[in-house]
């Protein structure tokens, strides 16, 4: 047991000692973490920025989707290491060498989610929008896109975790944030503390990012039904058949009483 504790404290000591060594910007843990987050977030944002218009276009012109999907899937099959090296002649050792391939991977993961999200708008909602006098573009932007947000964010969660873990691979071309700890500090020197610190911080970064995405979904889509909670409530509240589909019971407990007063006998 003591051996484990010793090992853990040795790792922690190493992390503290190397957290942000003054004068040695390149080798500190903190600068690597910042670099990792920067590479990952920029890639995700660029991937999202590309996936949205591409997805909208694929929904608007349905014949576009099969070839586009095949195209991006082929890209996904190319190993990331290969892509990083292919980028080198064009972008050198700048951040773009890591960002361009990673953004492409994000795009591949997100595109089907954007398209499926836009397509899952119920037919009666879409038809109502047409009948209200929405033009095709306005309908896409103000009805179908907001309704697709939960599905898009679900895709973003997968894409962000994948990207955050893949940034480390870019350490092979001299980038890679926390990947540098794992590769150059740990692997080459047969020293396990930097490897452990690199892995733990990568996982923490992925978790925090995921939590931020979940939070932003709650804020962006207050209208989404939280199914699990609702069903339990529905069983507890004994409401008449007509009202059964009603009522987030918790939101307004007086509701069923109000509607049962007979002024509108059909309300209950």
């Amino acid at each position: 047991m003591n051996a484990v504790w010793d090992w853990i404290s040795a790792v922690a000591d190493w992390a503290a000692a190397n957290w942000n060594p003054p004068g040695d910007q390149e080798r500190g843990v903190w600068p690597r973490l910042v670099e990792h987050a920067r590479l990952a977030y920029l890639s995700i944002l660029i991937g999202l920025a590309a996936a949205l218009p591409l997805g909208l276009a694929c929904v608007r012109w349905t014949r576009l989707y099969p070839p586009v999907l095949t195209g991006v899937n082929v890209l996904y099959a190319v190993p990331s290491i290969a892509l990083f090296f292919l980028m080198l002649p064009y972008t050198g050792f700048s951040d773009w060498t890591a960002i361009v391939p990673l953004a492409l991977y994000t795009l591949v993961i997100l595109l089907p989610n954007v398209v499926d999200g836009l397509r899952q708008v119920p037919d009666h909602v879409r038809q109502a929008a047409v009948a209200m006098g929405f033009g095709p573009l306005r309908r896409l932007l103000t009805v179908e896109t907001p309704v697709a947000v939960p599905v898009i964010i679900a895709g973003l969660r997968v894409a962000s975790v994948a990207t955050i873990s893949m940034v480390s691979v870019a350490s092979l071309v001299g980038l890679g944030g926390l990947g540098q700890l794992i590769l150059s500090e740990g692997f080459r020197r047969q020293f396990d503390a930097p490897i452990v610190v690199g892995i733990v911080l990568t996982v923490v970064l992925a978790f925090v990012t995921d939590a931020l995405l979940v939070l932003s979904q709650r804020l962006l889509t207050p209208w989404v039904r939280r199914d699990g909670r609702r069903r339990k409530r529905k069983q507890r509240a004994a409401v008449p058949a007509g009202e059964a589909a009603a009522v987030d019971a918790g939101a307004d407990p007086t509701q069923s009483a109000e509607t049962g007063n007979g002024a509108h006998p059909w309300m209950s």
Binding site: P122, H124, V125, A128, M132, G133, P146
Partner: peptide, 19 residues
């Protein structure tokens, strides 16, 4: 679009915008 804005329309299942 202009014609449709001048004609009310009610659809089965209401077709309300969920968001």
């Amino acid at each position: 679009a202009r014609l449709r804005r001048s004609i009310g329309y009610v659809i089965q299942q209401a077709g309300l915008f969920p968001h």
